[in-house]
Design a protein around this nucleic acid. Sequence first.
DNA 1: GTCGCGATCATACCTAGGTATGATGCAGCC
DNA 2: GGCTGCATCATACCTAGGTATGATCGCGAC
Lengths: 224, 224
Amino acid sequence: MTRPVDKGHPPAKSSSSVVIIVDDDAGIRASLDSLFRSVGLETRLFASAAELLGGPLPDRPGCIVLDVRLPGVSGLDLQGQLTRQGIGYPIIFMTGHGDIPMSVRAMKAGAVDFLSKPFRDQDMLDAVTAALARDAQRRADATAKEDIRAQYETLTAREREVMGYVTAGLMNKQVAGLIGLSEITVKIHRGNVMRKMGVKTLADLVRKAEALGVSQTRGTTDQT
Amino acid sequence: MTRPVDKGHPPAKSSSSVVIIVDDDAGIRASLDSLFRSVGLETRLFASAAELLGGPLPDRPGCIVLDVRLPGVSGLDLQGQLTRQGIGYPIIFMTGHGDIPMSVRAMKAGAVDFLSKPFRDQDMLDAVTAALARDAQRRADATAKEDIRAQYETLTAREREVMGYVTAGLMNKQVAGLIGLSEITVKIHRGNVMRKMGVKTLADLVRKAEALGVSQTRGTTDQT
DNA sequence: GTCGCGATCATACCTAGGTATGATGCAGCC
DNA sequence: GGCTGCATCATACCTAGGTATGATCGCGAC
């Protein structure tokens, strides 16, 4: 799943943030475009969900400002589709004819805010500021995790197996017994794991394993 | 901060969940009471925020069903007060005269749901089910963390210092150099840490340190 | 003041971890 | 066929971790 997000390219100028506007009303699009540009934000304008889903999305910090009522796929449905495709842009909803259940549904699904039209410019800017902050955090987390995963991908099957047991706290000889190897071989795999994962200490390896969710966490706990 | 929640007592019969109902309308209270009891849930009834805040809250799995409009402190204000007091019961709001900004504010502040009166019984029961599930998770997390913290509290200042460096991946001799001790003494402290924290392996210690947020991640000291 | 506890250090001994060198076997690929 | 990468194991050597025993010192409690 997880639709590609225009990745793989060189760094690009991805410093500034982009606000993706989806509204079927050209007037609204124009005024939002103007509002965001006035504070130095870049924008992308779309008139429908289909239009947004049609092309690639930028791989940059940003957020989505989304009208609930759209031709074809509604804003709430679009929210679900984006989530399922692994597109994590924070979403700010706006609506002219919303009700409480609609807003609650949107917020439950992770929306940053839900504004009723007409709204004050400042309210929208505040919401976008919050959304961009959330996105920055999300992207930082995702990048860190992706780096670790990339290292993990370079491991062979055996090395991953050994890594799981080692980060669970088992001794080399225990690992050797469990998978039917000599202790020397386990040591070699273990050394390879440390090198490929880019860590020098077991503590760091454990932390990376936790981030990956690959720790075996077998009961080596407590006593009294 | 964190108002006591009727702790310290023996286990009690805390198996079933309790629903705390806060509404100034006696009829609503009665019908909700009946609804929840019909599905085997215990209830506590309150007519105002002050009444709820007046007495101790049970230390049991549960959730709060809260009217937004209350005499004196409003439901939304009560939500904030409970949060500040460290009372983490999930909250379901209900209102007869709500609007979108009100619901959005409540959801942003962590409410589980926000129901408009009149609501269907089933919707309320679904919301309570979700709230109780969230509370069970919250309590499990809190208990696990509290257990670890209790172990950490038994450490002396030196032992905590050593634990920070050890879980950061430093070797005994490096720790010794940093705090001006001999390596042998560091080993003793380290052994005490392992024993008091109830772990047998460094991997487990690192995980507990992560849960506590006391890993040193290179560089400076702190901790008392 | 004596006791207990924490903190400190030393000697000694054992286990565990890490790496270097060298070697064999196997599977996939050009 | 030969090359490469993975996996396997051995011997050897060194470092790091862990514990036991014993000892000194300071501080607060009784």
